[in-house]
Computed example of a mutant assay.
Amino acid sequence: MKGHSVFIIDDDEAVRDSLVTLLRGQGVTARSFVSGDDFFARLPETETACVVTDIRMPGMDGAEVVRRLNELRPGAWPVIVITGHADVPMAVQLMKSGVVDFIEKPFDPNRLFESLMGCLGVLTDRVTRQKTARQAELRLAELTPRERQVFEALVEGRSNKEIGLALNISPRTVEIFRAKVMTKMQADSLSALVRIALSIRG
Rank of each mutant, 00 (worst) to 15 (best):
C119A: 15
H4Q: 08
T132D: 06
P78I: 01
G25D: 13
S159P: 04
N70F: 00
N160I: 01
S97Q: 15
V99G: 07
T53W: 08
M60W: 08
S115D: 04
Q130V: 03
K161F: 11
D108I: 01
L190C: 00
R201G: 05
Q130F: 01
K2C: 02
V81S: 02
S97Y: 09
D17Y: 08
I80P: 00
T53D: 06
Q186Y: 00
A86L: 02
D101I: 08
R146W: 04
A141C: 02
P109G: 03
V150E: 05
D108G: 00
I176T: 13
Q149N: 04
D37M: 06
D108H: 09
V150P: 09
E162Q: 15
R126E: 10
E162Y: 04
S159I: 03
M182W: 03
T132H: 10
I176S: 10
K105G: 00
A166L: 12
P89E: 08
A63E: 12
T46N: 05
K180V: 00
L154Y: 02
E137D: 11
L123Q: 12
E156T: 14
V15M: 10
M182F: 03
V88G: 00
Q130D: 09
V92I: 14
V15S: 12
S35F: 14
V79E: 07
F107Q: 02
T144A: 14
M185Q: 09
A141W: 02
L154A: 07
M57K: 05
R134T: 10
H4C: 10
D101V: 01
P109N: 06
